[in-house]
């Protein structure tokens, strides 16, 4: 691993700047709703990567926070009539709370059990989404109004909505980047590399694990809450275990533990789903094949391989 220097940070910031410029002009060239979907999933994957890539914890139930927040945000906008930013805030807060409850139980087990515990609790959230009175059962929550930002700016049109989504997701991703490079992030990496050593140095490892779990759940929730406003919908797809698998796939494909890998992975997976939608179940098969090949052949992921080639952390 190449040590991080001020030059690296400048490189990362330059890439972020180029990415931002690209995203600002993007909606004028591609279908904005598609671009917004990619951005939501990019934030989701980045949040997941904080936990897996930097915390070393494989959660197989991140759909719970993504989908749970999407339900709460949709409910807040539709039934309580809240403005979009407040609805998103409600969804995110719900995901943070859910992350705190599930996380404090899940960190009591390690490794493979941790993955199974998170998956099982996510399935419980799925059943709740299916059965609770306010979730609309099989139909989910449909035709959620887009509302007016701060009660003033209408988000009916795609372009204003696009910039609302861009602002939130991009800030979220920058914030996650900041967390990774903070002292807190350094402790996380120490725990990931050598947990007994971190304990002997006096770090309360479980507290750090819980904190990173809650942070990851919160930002996954932010992504899900924003997605519900874009698609005006919260559905069982968002809380299903397949969604948890998808975010793992995005991160694995792009490169876990890299900054830009999850973003690239999200863009590739969403694009693939978009173009292959007519092939039905083949999408699942292709995703499975990518999983298998990814684990067998390129565990570093696309961006990880690129970073190794350029000898720079990306």
């Amino acid at each position: 691993m190449v040590p991080e220097t001020a030059g690296m940070t400048r490189l990362h910031l330059a890439i972020f700047a180029v990415l931002l410029a690209f995203l600002i002009i993007l909606p004028f060239f591609v279908y904005p709703v598609f671009a917004m979907k990619v951005m939501c999933f990019a934030l989701f994957a980045a949040a997941f990567n904080l936990l897996l890539g930097f915390g070393g914890l494989l959660s197989f139930g991140h759909a719970a926070y993504f989908g749970g927040a999407s339900y709460v945000a949709a409910h807040a906008a539709k039934v309580w009539g809240l403005t979009p930013e407040l609805a998103v805030l409600c969804g995110t807060a719900a995901a943070a709370f859910l992350g705190l409850v599930i996380g404090s139980l899940a960190i009591r087990r390690q490794g493979i059990y941790f993955a199974m515990v998170t998956l099982a609790f996510a399935q419980m959230v799925y059943f709740l989404a299916l059965q609770l009175p306010f979730t609309g059962g099989e139909d989910g929550l449909q035709s959620v109004p887009r509302g007016d930002l701060f009660g003033v700016f209408s988000l009916q049109d795609s372009i204003p909505l696009y910039f609302f989504v861009l602002t939130i997701t991009f800030s979220g991703i920058l914030f996650l980047y900041r967390i990774v490079h903070s002292p807190f992030g350094q402790v996380l990496k120490a725990i990931r590399e050598n947990e007994p050593r971190a304990i002997s140095l006096g770090y309360d490892v479980n507290r750090y694990k819980l904190m990173v779990f809650v942070l990851s759940a919160t930002f996954a929730g932010l992504a899900g809450a924003v997605k519900s406003q874009v698609f005006q919908l919260a559905s069982l797809t968002d809380v299903h275990w397949a969604m948890s698998g998808e975010v793992v796939l995005m991160t694995l494909l792009g490169g876990m533990g890299t900054i830009f890998g999850p973003l690239a992975g999200a863009a590739i997976v969403v694009t693939m789903q978009n173009y292959l939608a007519t092939f039905g179940a083949w999408v699942t098969v292709i995703q499975g094949v990518i999983f298998v090949l990814g684990v067998l052949l390129f565990r570093k992921g696309l961006i990880g391989v690129l970073a190794q080639w350029l000898k720079r952390p990306l």
Binding site: G111, A115, Q287, G288, L296
Partner: peptide, 18 residues
């Protein structure tokens, strides 16, 4: 061990999808 979980998850997707 986590790679085993990821890989068999991929296998499950392939079998179910087919």
């Amino acid at each position: 061990h986590l790679y085993g979980l990821l890989l068999t998850f991929g296998l499950a997707l392939i079998i179910q999808g087919l």
